[in-house]
Amino acid sequence: MADQSAKQGGGPIIKIAFFVVLALVLLSGAIFAPEHPGLAIHPMDQFEIKPLFGGDHLGTFTPTNQTLWMVLAIVGIVLLLVVGSRGRAIVPTRGQSIAELAYGFVYKMVEDVAGKDAVKYFPGIMTLFMFIVFANFLGLIPTSFTATSHIAVTAVLALIVFVFVTVLGFVKNGVGFLGLFWVSAAPLPLRPVLAIIEIISYFVRPVSHSIRLAGNMMAGHAVIKVFAGFAAALGLFGFLPILAIAAFYALEVLVAFIQAYVFSILTCVYLKDALHPSH
């Protein structure tokens, strides 16, 4: 086959690649089609939390597959920010450049959005951002586990931000923090109504903050899983869903970063409200 296409000339490598892909598609159809006739899709199985070292019991301190991937996130962060910057070079290496880029990115975000006096909370926001971005991207590795797809995780993250920002607001401004809910720009009769709306929206913050991240992660991974199920069921034409998975995966890579960014920037916005509650 290779000889023939070589004789024909004109991009033999492309032709070989085409035949290889075709063969793989046929082979995968031959392998998977008989085993799973019909649709057998379990898109939510990937989110199941299982004890890491076997056993059925899941106690509070049992290491799980989720624990493993959170530890891997720590490893990734250490590799990037600690090992990457160990050279302390004036002219940075590639790894150090990325570490400095991450540092500068979040630092500038805190400074621009929350103001200069928020810079002392930068390490906390950096922690949130690095954890989310690493959890999201590690979750994109096939067969891995996405910690941030769980509402328990994102809810705790959002509640940490919510409680911290609320307490900080009262500590910094005292009762003046309630001015956040009292829209002094509006006509006086409207203000109580607006205050109720503002208070409701304030307490909805942690809900939207957490569900936005978990929902994005969960939905993307579930959709990919559904397409994968189609690929297995379609046999010969399985390459169509596989192309769709490739396209969707590219989108997921984007979403993985954007959601980490959105979570951090909203944290900065809330922090700004706590430091400067006036409208």
Partner: peptide, 20 residues
């Protein structure tokens, strides 16, 4: 699974915060 998740998440966040 929430207790387990929250415990390990808090551990992870504390470790990351300390490393940073």
């Amino acid at each position: 699974t929430f207790g387990n998740q929250i415990f390990w998440l808090v551990v992870t966040l504390v470790v990351i915060y300390l490393v940073l």
